[in-house]
């Protein structure tokens, strides 16, 4: 990355300071930076989706973009169908395009119900895709790795923590007696887990701030070598 007082570095520095200034209090510079961020993000995602999804995946594959270009671009599925009279697998993108159009019907109040069809398709395929994979990776594999012999302290902690944690989420019986004791231990395990997660989150956020400070003092101002 280029260092020093270049135009882009200075602009980035002003935007960084503008966003950080919110820590002091809300101010016009922060508002400008926030609005700019939202606008640029929306624009970036639109362009990204157009050039990386719609254009290559849908319009190029179907042959719609070829209709508007004079180059020697490869024929799309529609050209193959109408010129050569044969079916091209890429014609299936027509179904995807159609589902996409149906989704946009949400914008028309009277036709909004049509968007439920592509939504149903997405929910159905995602559920099917994830059902077995989640069960295999997040249930069976984890269960397998928790069945351990009581030979080390680590193993004991793992087994006891897992069982007590599960007991805490067992609500079919009142948490009294042995069940209550196990649930109490489970609560401790959960609290320690949340504490570790919080610690990691603090670490992560600090790292992000370090990154911005490094940019300001090293890349922009050149004070840190």
């Amino acid at each position: 990355m280029e260092t020093g007082f270049t135009f882009t570095n200075t602009l980035a520095a002003i935007l960084t300071i503008g966003i950080i200034s919110f820590l002091w209090r809300d101010n016009p510079l922060y508002k400008v930076c926030e609005a700019l961020f939202v606008g640029v993000s929306a624009g970036y995602w639109f362009v990204s989706l157009w050039y990386q999804n719609l254009l290559p995946q849908l319009f190029d594959n179907l042959g719609i973009s070829q209709l508007f270009s004079s180059g020697s671009a490869e024929d799309g599925a529609l050209q193959v169908l109408f010129k050569q009279g044969r079916f091209d697998d890429r014609l299936f993108y027509l179904v995807a395009g159609l589902l996409g159009l149906m989704m946009l019907m949400r914008l028309i109040p009277n036709l909004g119900w049509i968007s439920r069809w592509p939504l149903g398709f997405i929910i159905g395929t995602t559920s099917g895709l994830y059902f077995t994979t989640y069960f295999q990776s997040n249930a069976m594999a984890q269960l397998k790795s928790t069945v351990l012999p009581f030979t080390t302290v680590g193993n004991i902690v793992m087994v006891v923590g897992t069982i007590c944690g599960l007991v805490y989420f067992y609500f079919s019986k009142e948490h009294k007696g042995a069940l209550g004791g196990a649930a109490k231990i489970g609560t401790w395990f959960l609290m320690i887990t949340f504490g570790a997660s919080f610690g990691y989150t603090v670490m992560s956020r600090m790292s992000l701030l370090i990154g911005r400070f490094d940019f300001l003092f090293s890349t922009w101002l050149g004070l840190v070598k």
């Binding site: 990776s137 594999a141 984890q142 397998k144 790795s145 793992m158 887990t193 570790a196 997660s197 990691y200 989150t201 670490m203 992560s204 956020r205 790292s207």
Partner: peptide, 17 residues
Amino acid sequence: NTAVQAPQVYPYVHAGQ
């Protein structure tokens, strides 16, 4: 992983995934 994501992923290391 980012630190904020790491606790979610640690069980996969233990499971050998």
